[in-house]
Design a protein around this nucleic acid. Structure first.
Lengths: 188, 188, 188, 188
DNA sequence: GATGAATGAGGCTTCATTCAT
DNA sequence: GATGAATGAAGCCTCATTCAT
């Protein structure tokens, strides 16, 4: 299938999918997504061969946006802790700003719809973040632990922090800092 | 004095559901679950009014089993750290021993099928664990953070640890310890 | 410019429904109706959102056809009695010609499936007939009775007449006249 | 199947059926009827072999009650008109007093569930009424019309009258009289 | 007999995907 | 390409009836 002329509808569909999936779950009908996007139901399939394909692209899109946002404006020269905190703040803020996106990403991640390839691609997008984490723990107590493990923990603390920031958004900033400090205590 | 409702079938259905959902996801047909349980499809509905009801009961069952296992054999008198580690070990071991149960629990947790009531009931089952966590952080750096936040982090580190233990099960014991130490560094 | 929705299928479905309902009642499966109409079962639902919707539309269709037939070719200028008789003849003939339609209409009318809206719409279709009745009784013994009552009686005598015409169709014409005369005696 | 010991439950079931069918239609589940009657669902089938059987007996029961009420206290010696009016009043009053019974009887009558035998039995119950009608028209304009036809018309006018009495129950008595007068004008 | 759990065929409806226009 | 009607397999759930206790 040739690439469709404009990306407009593709993006409209992806955004609509996010909105619909938040409320209806992954089993939301493609027709509903198309309608929400203001696109005829049949056309969805000229942009995405199958529903699974749409879901995988959505996964990548969200992951990419998340990673991009986290790493945006990262100062090239600064203390590791400072650099890491910058990323942490961007990252968690993204989640608080777009809770639906985070939720959908979570749903997609546990679902069986995402292919190994997509997961691998998704991980690549987090590569810079991983590198940052790797350096941060270089002299700390987890210096000998497998990087994957450290990343997993970092990710999970981030998730918990995001949850709490979203839940109690008036103190979001404070929770953001607390989460970071806790993480730092673990690795450094 | 009619045939009494058999608890066996109820359990068979719940276990079958776990097995089926691991491979097919939450959208697995009820007929498939019934078949796997060796029960006629219509009978599923004499034990669970709807599929959603089945899912909610499964959630509670798994949560309850997980909490029960974690707290089993907890020595009444011991150092907090020791007590907590005992729980941690039980908990993560359960996840490694029954990866399907954990996976299904994860799917259920993010799905929209679980009612607020079920979630509340599920939380209650973790109450003892929560208390333990509360005491552990009493003199540490997170002593002023909201308990919910501490629990969320604890939970997320546990998740990461379980993931890693499952993935690299030869070193499961080591990862279990590492995860715990990381957590302890955060709170104490 | 997709395939336009075919009115043919809609009508085929309505006619099939009539045929099926006569023999199987209102509980006739939609699949059976679709099959009888030579249409795939799923397609029934592109023409009628639900079975109830199909039933309501069928009700209206039949009512409309009945009213239309009754009033067809009504001479603008003629004695009231003459005009009324014309209608009466058309009306009862329709019932004798299409006994299945009448029977289905009867089933629908007593069933709980027909909405108040549909009933109201159905009544409107009989408005001209009602007007005719109203004029006919204007100088008779029922001139002071509520119009609704007169209409109900008229309708019920018509029903009885139709029954008898159908049952003993060789004398249909005679019964038609007798029914009309009886009715006329009542109102004029 | 041997006759069950007591008629209590049988009657409870029949009455429950009436109540349930009014609101849910003839497709009401037997389990619902049993529950409404305070009888275990399985027991329904010791009183009625099948659902159809229950429906037929209900039909007969209602028909019998209706006829019985109509003919109750009929003065042996009185003018035909007077006698007939007595019956008419009883009959229509019954319908106004028990609108659910009438409605259910109507539903049953048009449904395909009632056997020819039941219908025949039902007609027999109206025999006295038929005889009355026959005498009433003996010298009137319908003296040569088939008795069946006259009965049908009588029945249908009664139906219309009942409808109107129920609808506008404050003037029930008046409508009762009006209906009767209209009928009388037709036959006498 | 009384009870209510058990059964499995079948009903209505949904939906991803295709395809006529 | 764009559109939305068409398709039919499949899903959840219902229910009359049977039967173990």
């Amino acid at each position: 299938m040739p690439r469709p002329r404009s990306d407009e509808k593709r993006i409209a569909l992806l955004e609509a999918a996010t909105r619909i999936i938040v409320t209806q779950g992954l089993s939301a009908p493609t027709a509903g997504i198309a309608k929400e996007a203001g696109v005829p139901n049949g056309s969805l399939f000229t942009y995405f061969e199958t529903k699974t394909e749409l879901l995988n692209q959505l996964y990548l899109e969200l992951k990419s946006e998340m990673a991009g946002t986290a790493l945006k404006g990262l100062p090239a020269k600064a203390e590791p802790r400072e650099r890491f905190f910058r990323v942490w703040r961007n990252w968690t803020n993204w989640a608080v700003t777009f809770p639906e996106k985070r939720q959908v990403l979570a749903q997609l991640s546990v679902s069986g719809e995402i292919t190994a390839q997509s997961r691998a691609d998704g991980h690549k997008m987090m590569a810079n973040l991983a590198e940052l984490a790797d350096r941060s723990r270089a002299n700390g107590p987890m210096r000998k632990a497998p990087l994957g493990f450290v990343l997993a923990i970092m990710n999970s603390v981030a998730e918990a922090t995001m949850d709490y920031m979203t839940q109690d958004s008036t103190n979001a900033k404070k929770h953001c800092k607390e989460g970071f400090d806790a993480l730092w205590r673990m690795v450094e």
